[in-house]
């Protein structure tokens, strides 16, 4: 089997594992976005538009916090859907005996999971721009998306942290990974107004990329555990 067809097989297997969870998440994301639209529309029906602009631009009130934890929830559920079945009943160990390098296999899995999470994050970002842009000028809509960037990065961190925790065979190490994930996630939700992460989002993204090489460690330990 060529590595290309093996990768296709890995992706197919991952899709089969997460399809219901992903479709459920798609539904949840769409429902929350629809709620955000209705909520914002309601806001503009019961309050004067110029006052809402004042709250948002001057008082820095965020009118779209409904989606704040949505990417993190999405990442967590996708990782759980992918790796809970793997780690139960020793199936993970079987997978690691496929004729392909274990680290490449794990990266194939998380690549697929991250891609599927990324699609939902893209949906959230695009919908946020369109929803906010319905009642606010372009600057307001761009500002909303920039404000949401750390929350979207939270999806990435939650996904990889959950993968680390679930793939890790040793309970104490699981706690360490849980601590890293929780500590990193907590960095991303410290805003008190709009665009406050503009100066650090690049650095935080670089730090979050460290999770890509990191995620193969539990697989390595799983494979070599006694």
């Amino acid at each position: 089997m060529s590595s290309k067809s093996l990768l296709a097989a890995v992706f197919l297997k991952e899709w089969l594992k997460i399809r219901w969870a992903w479709l459920g998440l798609l539904g949840v994301n769409l429902a929350v976005l629809a709620y955000l639209f209705v909520e914002m529309r309601h806001q503009f029906q019961v309050e004067h538009s110029e006052m809402i602009w004042y709250w948002v631009f001057e008082l820095r009130r965020l009118l779209y916090t409904e989606i704040k934890y949505l990417p993190a929830l999405t990442g967590l559920v996708i990782a759980a859907a992918q790796f809970v079945p793997e780690t139960s009943g020793g199936r993970f160990r079987l997978s690691l005996h496929l004729p392909v390098r274990g680290d490449l296999l794990v990266w194939g899995w998380v690549g697929f999971g991250a891609l599927m999470g990324g699609l939902l994050a893209l949906l959230d970002a695009g919908a946020l721009y369109l929803i906010v842009g319905t009642w606010f000028p372009h600057e307001g809509a761009v500002s909303a998306v920039r404000t949401a960037l750390p929350w979207l990065l939270g999806g990435w961190v939650a996904y990889f942290a959950t993968a680390l925790v679930l793939l890790e065979p040793q309970p104490l190490r699981r706690l360490v990974y849980l601590g890293i994930g929780a500590g990193f996630l907590a960095l991303l939700y410290q805003e008190r107004g709009y665009q406050e992460y503009d100066q650090v989002i690049g650095w935080l993204t670089l730090a979050a990329l460290l999770l890509v090489p990191a995620v193969v460690l539990p697989a390595h330990r799983y494979r070599h555990r006694c």
Binding site: D103, V176, Y177, G179, I180, G183, F184, A186, L187, A207, L210, L211, V212, P213, A214, V215, V216, L217, H220, R221
Partner: peptide
Amino acid sequence: MTARLARWSLLLLIVLVLAVWL
């Protein structure tokens, strides 16, 4: 080697998280 790289990445992440929260 990838296992070592993975661990060093995690060490750096722990340092980052601790340097902020401790």
